[in-house]
Design a protein around this nucleic acid. Structure first.
Length: 265
DNA sequence: CACCAGGCAGTGC
DNA sequence: GCACTGCATGGT
């Protein structure tokens, strides 16, 4: 039962990764985490506890979902040289990973996220999955012809037409989700932002969490505070080509450590 | 009552 | 280009 610090450091943390605002279909009861991923009939359900991560490590899908192939220790080592507070953010929750979510689910989820809070986002998405997806995340096809009244009933408010616009852009091919993984990042953002309802923040989150574009650096209200207070005069370029990963460590630290007199969930 | 939440579009300048 | 405002909804 010897667990050296290096192994502990290396390990995925469920509690620091799942509730860190990148995915919205999970729950936790008595230390057991339930995670849902996949669109429509491709729904997958994971049940796992921190004590035994074998349901993840033994399954290629979930290993990829939790990004076990990326060397986060190296990334954190680089980030930690940038500044003391960056080092502290890495040390605060070293087990954070950037999830590999389905690109459509990520895009749609972050359209829902705008001017919204995480708890309510999760409720809305859960109701959308029940209403349109039969439990799985709603397919593009199911939302292309969705009625705005239905979406408002589920709590989407002014985002209802944005969801339909997004589904139509994916359906008619003006957004090619697979292409977004490889093309120039500014082109990828521009393609997404042509949709009425997708701005820079939603585009960056979709690209980071759905297309694994680690160069994306979503600037929400928390990250604006982080940059103003801790990196004045700098932008994302100070964090290098994997700035999105640094962003997630900083976001989680800023939001949950209380250093900005943060609220609780 | 006001203000906020992983923002965005529209308007005015 | 930048600053400002309304927007649905639920929580504090």
């Amino acid at each position: 039962m010897v667990k050296n610090n290096q192994m502990t450091e290396r390990q995925l943390s469920l509690k620091d990764t799942l509730p860190s605002g990148q995915c919205f279909r999970f729950s936790e009861h008595d230390g057991v985490w339930t995670v849902k991923a996949g669109v429509g009939k491709n729904l997958r359900v994971l049940s796992v506890s921190q004590d035994d991560l074998s349901p993840i490590t033994d399954d290629p899908f979930w290993s990829d979902f939790f990004d076990l192939g990326t060397d986060y220790d190296s990334l954190k080592a680089e980030f930690s040289t940038i500044s003391p507070v960056m080092a502290k953010a890495c040390e605060y929750a070293p087990g954070i990973r950037i999830l590999n979510q389905d690109p459509w689910e990520a895009l749609c989820s972050f359209v829902v996220s705008q001017n919204n809070n995480i708890k309510r986002i999760m409720g809305i998405i859960d109701r959308m999955c029940g209403f349109y997806g039969g439990g799985g995340f709603p397919t593009v096809e199911s939302l292309v012809d969705a009625r705005e009244d239905d979406l408002r009933m589920l709590g989407l408010g002014f985002r209802a037409p944005y969801i339909v616009n997004t589904a139509r852009a994916v359906y008619d091919g003006s957004i090619d989700l697979d292409k977004l993984r490889n093309i120039d990042i500014d082109d990828a953002r521009a393609i997404l932002m042509k949709v009425k309802g997708i701005g820079p923040k939603v585009a960056d989150c979709a690209l980071l969490f759905g297309c694994h574009r680690l160069d994306c650096f979503p600037m929400d209200v928390w990250m604006k505070r982080v940059m103003a207070e801790w990196f004045p005069g700098h932008d994302k370029s100070i964090f290098g080509p994997n700035a999105g990963v640094a962003q997630q460590y900083l976001f989680h630290y800023a939001r949950t450590s209380g250093c900005f007199s943060a609220k609780e969930d």
